[in-house]
Design a binder for these strands. Structure first.
Length: 421
RNA sequence: GGGAUCGUAGCUCAGUCGGUUAGAGCGCCUGACUGUGGCUCAGGAGGUCGUGGGUUCGAGUCCCAUCGGUCCCCCCA
């Protein structure tokens, strides 16, 4: 069959075979966030394009070549390419900072990037996000990292399947000097850098550090540590001590710079050792102490994380972490003969009213076909209604595992099944 | 944006050196068993071989183009 319409490149349907797995990780994420004191925020898919140009950065790859932007009337819109900027926008728009204290917000959102798809990378993907707004202390960084690792572990991944990579990229106080140092290093080795990195040297020199192609050259690039200001150094040391206290394992990755412009100080990602192919980052995040002010709000320290839902699922499957089976229905109502069909429908409604999951054949098929459907439905019980049952106002209940049959009055049907499940 | 690779039934695939009505397994439907599922047996439905063009007496098979999937670079969740 030739398909007239298909899902767009890089966009995927989640079919019933898979959707229960999505429901599973989503409910785990919600429960996890609740335990850590987060509340949910939901923001629109569309924002003004400018929001992301200001926050993620006009020169970033995400904004400059991957964002879905379209114009309607005067306004330029963008499909959200990431989750943080909309949350910060909402935080400001609704004056949440006015309530004082720290705001911990979580979300589950689709996001859109026009890249060429590959394993673990899609044009519409989904992300579990968590943001902490108003917390400057490294306690917040430590709690966020611990929460993320805790999440993966409670899903059944083992510590050796994961690697937390941690870095600091300084702040507006100290980063300029470091950026100059990296730029100088780049110019000294200019001819050995790839074309991409030669261009980066002007716009965003730190990005040459996480270019794989130039890794051999940038291995000898200056480290940031001597350039960090006292506040940034103290923050980073304090965070590392807290992680040791919490026994959260990590590796320092001095090349971890990340592609979103708003990050300051802490940056991190979690790598899955197996299951993801080339796109092996399960999550990424960091601190963005300047972003709230950049978007017009009061100076507000903040940090957050985005976890790839598809990548998490791929990893869970590859690592054979325990995953739930879809839940079958409780009972399948079978009608023998035309007169029984309306009664079967009514009994199904009765079961549903009693919180039981019930189904029946909707095509008026033969008894044999209905039994086959009952079997295939995975239901524990088939409820058989024929002339005899109609006469007696009862129902024959067949246990599809043991083949045992019982007869109960129609009025007591729900109660009987509840007691026997 | 660059590259690799693969497109045959709903799914997984076979199809010889180019040869006649394109096959298998699974799944689906019906029956054996007229009020009883799974197992077995018998039968059945389902394919313009991704699409378009070319070579040839003849193309699923060879050539070209094109579309689509997957994966890789890049980038990132």
């Amino acid at each position: 069959m030739e398909l007239k319409y298909r899902a767009l490149e890089g966009m995927h349907d989640v079919l019933p075979e898979q959707s229960h797995l999505w429901q599973y990780v989503e409910s785990r994420w919600r429960e996890h966030c609740r335990r850590y004191g987060y509340r949910e925020i939901r923001t629109p898919i569309l924002e003004t394009a400018e929001l992301f140009e200001r926050s993620v950065g006009e020169t970033s790859d995400i904004v400059s070549k991957e964002m879905y932007v379209f114009q309607r009337g005067e306004e330029r819109y963008a499909m959200k390419p990431e989750g943080t900027a909309p949350v910060v926008r909402a935080y400001l728009e609704h004056g949440l900072y006015g309530a004082g204290g720290v705001h911990k917000l979580y979300y589950i959102t689709p996001f859109f990037r026009g890249e060429r798809p590959q394993r673990g990378r899609y044009r519409q993907a989904h992300q579990f996000g968590a943001e902490i707004l108003g917390a400057a202390h490294p306690l917040a960084d430590a709690e966020l990292l611990a929460m993320v690792m805790d999440f993966f572990l409670t899903l059944g991944l083992t510590p050796d399947a994961l690697e937390l990579r941690l870095n600091t990229i300084g702040c507006p106080e100290c980063r300029p000097a470091y950026r100059e140092a990296v730029r100088n290093f780049g110019h000294e080795n200019y001819t050995q850098l790839c074309k991409n990195c030669q261009a980066r040297l002007e716009r965003n020199p730190l990005r040459i550090l996480d270019c794989k192609e130039c890794a051999d050259i940038t291995d000898s690039a200056p480290p940031i540590d001597p350039y960090l200001c006292d506040a940034c150094r103290t923050h980073f040391e304090s965070l590392q001590n807290l992680l040791k206290t919490l026994e959260v394992a990590y590796v320092r990755d001095v090349r971890l710079v990340r592609g979103l412009d708003y990050y300051t100080r802490t940056t991190f990602e979690v790598i899955a050792e197996q299951g993801l192919g080339a796109q092996n980052a399960l999550c990424g995040g960091g601190r963005y102490d300047g972003l709230v002010a950049e978007l017009g709000g009061p100076p507000t320290p903040a940090l957050g994380v985005g976890i790839g839902v598809e990548r998490t699922l791929l990893t869970l499957q590859a690592m054979q972490a325990p995953l739930p089976e879809p839940r079958p229905i409780d009972a399948y109502v079978v009608a023998f003969g035309e007169a029984a069909r309306p009664v079967a429908l009514k009994l199904a409604q009765q079961l549903r009213a009693a919180q039981l999951a019930a189904e029946l054949d909707l095509e008026a098929r033969s008894p044999k076909a209905q039994m086959r459907l009952a079997n295939r439905s995975g239901a524990r019980y088939a409820i058989l209604i024929g002339d005899a049952e109609l006469q007696q106002q009862n129902a024959t209940i067949k246990d599809l595992q043991t083949h045992e049959q019982s007869v109960v009055s129609q009025a007591e049907l729900s109660e009987w099944i509840k007691n026997h499940l």
